[in-house]
Nucleic acid binder design. Structure first.
Lengths: 213, 213, 213, 213
DNA sequence: AATGAATGAGATTTCATTCAT
DNA sequence: AATGAATGAAATCTCATTCAT
């Protein structure tokens, strides 16, 4: 009797497969999800299409990702891990790089994680009522960017670094948006302009904060 | 959910009522649509909710807007008209303004049209498969921005103006995104940073193009 | 973007149709729901079957009852109203009736509301995790029975009346259970035994409480 | 959900493992099944949850119980065996006991087999379309109760004993229902009232049949 | 034997859109 | 013109059961 849809819907998480075939399937499912979400956006993505694109059955998809939100969160999680590595690499080479190179490196973070990044941007977009997970993604990215900024220019005040990071995250999203808009009249050169804008801004900001170079 | 099967549907247009009560109803419906789309995004917006928010009946909504796409397009149309006026005003006062003022004026275009702008940004977002109408909105906005750029700095080459315009449109969207993110850890000061970035970029660009001031 | 399934799922209630055809449809849907739930129990009842049995489309069913739980609650609500009348009638005629007649009248409450009562019993059954609505149904029925008991025998202490009411509610459910079990080897005479049991019990209880007759 | 398409499936039976570890596993699975069914009812019980509760794998569950129905039937079977012992014990001590004691002993049959009895009551409930096995459970219980009645009061006619047994089975279910309802406003004293009712009824019935004591 | 991944039918629910009144 | 009921395709999600390893 009675509908008992597990009172704690929020807590649900992706299942981690223990066997080989399961792990491969999960990877394929995530890849498919990234592709479809990148193409159509989160809302327009259907679980059926994700499954089909992965060559799986709908039940298989739900075995590992008990609902659509968890699937998106898993994508976000995976991005988190990969982004962390990218940021670490940026920090490591900071010394040898000009402001322009540093700016480009940041702007490329979303661009370099090729297959997923378009999906991630789509997930970052949502007008409102995002799952807590996705809101956290934004916060964490800003925090991580701020960290790299201070690492590169220790003279920056913490609060200013936060503000600049917020702006840079938008610029990173813009990279993808512009890339996507090629074909709708945006020329690749526009990307260069974006880079110029960020470089000019960072150069000024760092100089004001008393950082050499 | 999801962008519809509309393939030939798109040719349909909104009814333009000639009588007073009809005009008021249409205005209320558009207002409601803007509010809901701003809150939830286009996909998650239901026609029923729009009608309810406008205190209208679903049948009434469909009388004036034969489908969801037409409703969105009407919003875009209205924005177009209003944005045109705003850009004209900007162009008119260009002489008296510093680069910083010019930059701010542009950044405020989306910000000033308060109730609608969030909806418009939501409509600008959708990753793909936008109705032709919405793709056109992007193109037109870029074109209009480019026009203002050249008006302000005739030395700019046409193609560069297009590229800069593409970047500025992204910056305009960022204004909204940052505003929306207050409450998720973004401080209002971030907006100032965004303005600084654009100012610094435009100053450099105009200078390179040989524009005084 | 984002799945926004109205955060207040609990509050949802049945829609009250404003037009004639809607009212008839709602009545037909409730009738159908009662029939199917009576036959198969709540869990095994499908919304599709309810709709089909009412000659309606699934969408029509959901227009008036936004989910399965609300449908069940509507049934419960309707039963409440009808049961109230039945209890009132019992109270009105109390004076002229023997204990035996009073006992039978109570036992018939569930039996007399023919089409619905089997469904109601099915809804009363559920092992656990019933919707608050259904738990309330049980409480209210017990309360109403207790009220009739005290009306009939003012000498009863309030707490004892509550206890007796709880027992009588079980007996009322047993009426239906026994009726249902005819065909599985239970003879109609079993019902008489049940009546005897309740009569004998009430006679003793009333006598102990100092009630004449 | 819903009672399955099992039509010929029912003929299948549970595997009876001969080795120790197998027997333990089966016991654990049955225990888990009883617990879950008691909590949620048969329909809402999932095979996956039963397996999980037993710390077993779904495949393991299916190894011993080829489908859900067989699992329920195994529970019923086990109850049968235990109930038989309980009834035998009751019959053995009949001489020394008052009617009240006899009544209480019967009412306790379902109550004493603690972990399982709630599940059994849940399995007895289902409005219709029970598996043949479960219908048989009801018949057998009634038969066994009737046997004890005649053993205690040989003067009862066989048919009347059947009818009384049907009523008593309902009363036994009521014991559980009342116990379960504590917490929803039913006081423990209600159980005493139930006992009083049955005692008063049996006393009268036995007296009418010419049984001493 | 045990494991747990795979299957897929079917249930619930949503919503754009149409249409009778 | 307005109303709101009707439609039904499609999306999300569940779960009993099978089967490869």
């Amino acid at each position: 009797m009675s509908s008992n849809k597990s009172t704690e819907t929020q807590t649900r998480t992706a299942l981690s497969p223990t066997r080989r075939p399961g792990q491969e399937r999960v990877a394929a499912l995530l890849e498919a999800a990234a592709a479809v979400i990148a193409d159509k956006g989160y809302d327009a993505t259907t679980m059926a299409e994700v499954a089909a694109r992965a060559g799986a059955q709908i039940g298989s998809l739900y075995r590992f990702f008990p609902n659509k939100d968890v699937l998106a969160n898993a994508l976000v999680e995976r991005f988190h891990v990969r982004a962390a590595e990218t940021f670490d690499a940026i920090d490591k080479e900071t010394e040898n790089r000009s402001v322009a190179e540093f700016a480009n490196a940041l702007l490329n973070v979303l661009g370099e994680l090729r297959p997923d990044s378009r999906a991630i941007v789509a997930l970052l977009e949502g007008t409102a009522e995002l799952s807590a997970h996705r809101l956290e993604l934004r916060r964490n990215l800003r925090k991580r960017i701020a960290q790299s900024l201070i690492h590169r220019c220790p003279g920056l005040r913490k609060t200013q670094a936060d503000d600049v990071a917020a702006v840079l995250l938008q610029a990173m999203k813009s990279v993808r948006a512009l890339t996507q808009e090629e074909g709708n009249g945006v020329r690749p050169a526009a990307l260069n302009e974006l880079r110029l804008m960020v470089q000019c801004y960072l150069a000024k900001t760092f100089a004001d904060a008393g950082c050499p170079r």
